[in-house]
Amino acid sequence: MSRAVLEVRDLRVSYAHPLGVVRAVDGVSFSLAPNERFGLAGESGSGKSTMALAILRMIHPPGHIDGGRVFLDGVELSALDREAMRRLRLAGIALVPQGSMNSLNPVMRIGQQIADALADHGEALSRPVLDARIADLLPTVGLRPDVASMYPHELSGGMKQRACIAIAICLRPRVIIADEPTSALDVVVQRQVMATLARVQRDLGAAVILVGHDMGLMAQFVDRLGIMYAGRLVEVAPIGAIVTAPRHPYTRALVASLPSLEHRGRLQGIPGLAPLLRDLPRGCAFHPRCPIAGERCRQETPALRSLGTDGTVACHAAEATP
């Protein structure tokens, strides 16, 4: 693998809560190769969105980054001052947040919103140059150049989401973090938007982190997938391995819970509920829901370890699985 474009080491985020400390991200490490599409999947409350914000140092009180280091092209982000970090957002790492299509300013034309992003990052361009740049940018996300003069309410959901992607890529970032970018869209439009994201990613040579819970989307989009459970990565593996031979019992349950269009039969949910982050069970956080949990799982938290393949898994019983 070539040198990592993004490296996250032992990232920890907690939220202060009247009933105790909530460890939303608890020692997560991973790295992204240039051009790589990496997925982060898990249930709501597993810490995947918090992690996306923590990479950009956008955690606000009562949240707090307790530790860990993030490197972008070898530059340590935690060492940057506020202004340097602000400039790096969008220019270095761009975020397409959840529900971002509703974050567009309703009384501002799309072109102006892109111009604002450029101006805010010190791109002092003359009006004609700016207009030309925006007119070039919009078609790359599948929008007509005249969308620049339109307001958000004149656009469909899919078009708004494309406009958000256009803003995210306007400074040609090295990493794009997309947090459930299509969760509010219909499946037909979702496919078009994801194809657009894949294309701009290839053209920019950027790496993408896709955050979400749709295993079908992950299977079709990412190269490698990290599965999060209760603030930790419990499995990281190439997507093919996750689909064909998931090693962690939670990953297997996630894959099995997706309804198939090939076979009709019983739908399989994951029994039990996701644990409360401020009151995690001792040992492996998944053990109360795990079909193969043993005594060791109730005592000792499993660390992420390699299994002799190109994936890693945090499960004491991973060898015992097919």
Binding site: V187, V188, Q190, R191, Q192, M194, A195, A198, D214, M215, G216, L217, A219, Q220, F221, G240, V243, T244, V255, L258, S260, L261
Partner: peptide, 29 residues
Amino acid sequence: VERPAHPYTKLLIASIPRVSTERSWMSEA
């Protein structure tokens, strides 16, 4: 679902991302 007849039903079914190692989903979008 197995043999959709209306072109919209066909599009709808083809648009669902499958948990599969076969990845033609985006190229056909």
